[in-house]
Design a protein around this nucleic acid. Sequence first.
DNA 1: TTTATTATCAACTTTATATTGATAATCAGA
DNA 2: TCTGATTATCAATATAAAGTTGATAATAAA
Lengths: 301, 301
Amino acid sequence: MDRIEAMRAFVAVVNEGTFTRAADRLDTSPQLVSKYVSQLEAHLGVRLLNRTTRRTHLTEAGTHYHQRAQQVLADIDDMENQLGNLQTQAQGLLRISAPVSFAIRHMAPLLSEFQKAHPAVGIDLQLNDRKVDILEEGFDIALRIGHLKNSSLIAKRLAPVRLVLCASPDYLKQHGTPQSPEELSHHRYLQYSYMDIGPGHPLQKWLQTQGRKSDGSMISNNGDVLVESAIAGAGVALQPTFIAGDAIKDGKLQVILPEYEPQPMALYAVYAHRQLLASKVRGFIDFVDGFFGKTPYWDQF
Amino acid sequence: MDRIEAMRAFVAVVNEGTFTRAADRLDTSPQLVSKYVSQLEAHLGVRLLNRTTRRTHLTEAGTHYHQRAQQVLADIDDMENQLGNLQTQAQGLLRISAPVSFAIRHMAPLLSEFQKAHPAVGIDLQLNDRKVDILEEGFDIALRIGHLKNSSLIAKRLAPVRLVLCASPDYLKQHGTPQSPEELSHHRYLQYSYMDIGPGHPLQKWLQTQGRKSDGSMISNNGDVLVESAIAGAGVALQPTFIAGDAIKDGKLQVILPEYEPQPMALYAVYAHRQLLASKVRGFIDFVDGFFGKTPYWDQF
DNA sequence: TTTATTATCAACTTTATATTGATAATCAGA
DNA sequence: TCTGATTATCAATATAAAGTTGATAATAAA
């Protein structure tokens, strides 16, 4: 027995006066209403209604139960409506984790446009370059850059992320512009801590050997710093275009060995499940999907 | 799906932290708990829990739902407990309808002893000689005297009700003591309005003919009055011993034609149903049953 | 890596549900 | 008083759901 339905049946009988009219109102048969009320009485161990074939009368217990049951049913309905609204109206707080450098440069317009479209959604944007556990830390969505390993999470590809080797024109004038990967060995590498372009790539060997040097080399876990260093002529950086794009466009950096550009990575939105997704999450995914286009503005140089 | 059980499962999972422990607490299988929560989510159209194999985390919707669901469940439990107590503890107001003359003479000690045994039960005693509709008028029990027609009501026999023909010794001295029904025709009958001893009885004919006379006859719907009149020597009365008993014992009235005494009627407790009887009603029925014994005290003359 | 724990799935058995038709009780009006 | 209409409930059956068991994938800890 679904006790909630049974309670609804009982309350309907009391309010409508007869089993038949209650059945009409609940879109069911009088037999079923009768059964429901009987089961409810059996469950409670109390007679709620004195019924003849022509009329029904509440017992003392029934009077008490009716009052409170009505309240409980109203509570449940209210609760479910509230959840329904939460669901359809896209409201609540959307917690997003995003990579530091990307977020600083490119997320402000995205978020402000999203909030224009969904005014009831609050946003909590946390910048992290480590791989957060979105469930454990309570994130709705994490934006990630890289080649994703398969996991139980859903990943939606949002934009390509090109990596380019680049250095300042001044630096290249001084040290020469490499024409092949081998010539790179004479250059200083501005290394990003978590860089991984995959094994087998022509540049891979250079990246690894440079990383091991300790003579005046530079490592950072922040791409902006490395790009700024490259602009200042400190060496060669392998960085995504969403960081280096502006400097390239302005002529402050020059792309080298473009024919050896690694396979592009991608920006992903990662979230926990596909079904019964809160609409604030659904809405954000849909919104950000296609926002940057196939060739994002930062790649237009 | 029983939504209440599903809510209980969800709340247990949240409070216990895992599906398995929740299942332990609810004495069921983790599979079932999982199913319940899934169904609840499907019903609500919202994901309530983000779950991995190792841990569960509430969603925003889940947090809201958990709070309110806990409240609703507590409400329901409280409501049912209250009804349970009402049921087991015999409390509430017991509404009784009883015949006027009987109640006046014999119910006070019964009721006061009953209330000693069940202090939480209040009594509303309404005196009526008409046949009340106990459901329509909201009575729990009606005491009735007579031969009951079968109906949908339950009738429990409580005591025999003997009818005796009687008159005052003075009256009999003046008019003679009848030795056969035929001799009654010379006597004045103090008639009770609703008297019916059934067809075929030797006295039946006399009762009917006397009732039609209009010369100084006496009719009342109250037996006390008729008995008082008989004591005063106004005529012969056919009245129950619970009214006339005292006067007979005191010698103020004399029984005549005892060998023609009608088949005894009975005092009945009439109530609406056998199952799920409120315990105040059950308690009263049990209490009054046997209270008067096989030969009630008013018949001991 | 291996082992243990956990949530969920899938298939099945058992139980409950809802539907239909029938019945007894009651009321209204003739 | 009788007939027809209304009403609650019963009984039987077809359908759907619940609950059970064993298996699987994912994760955490050893």
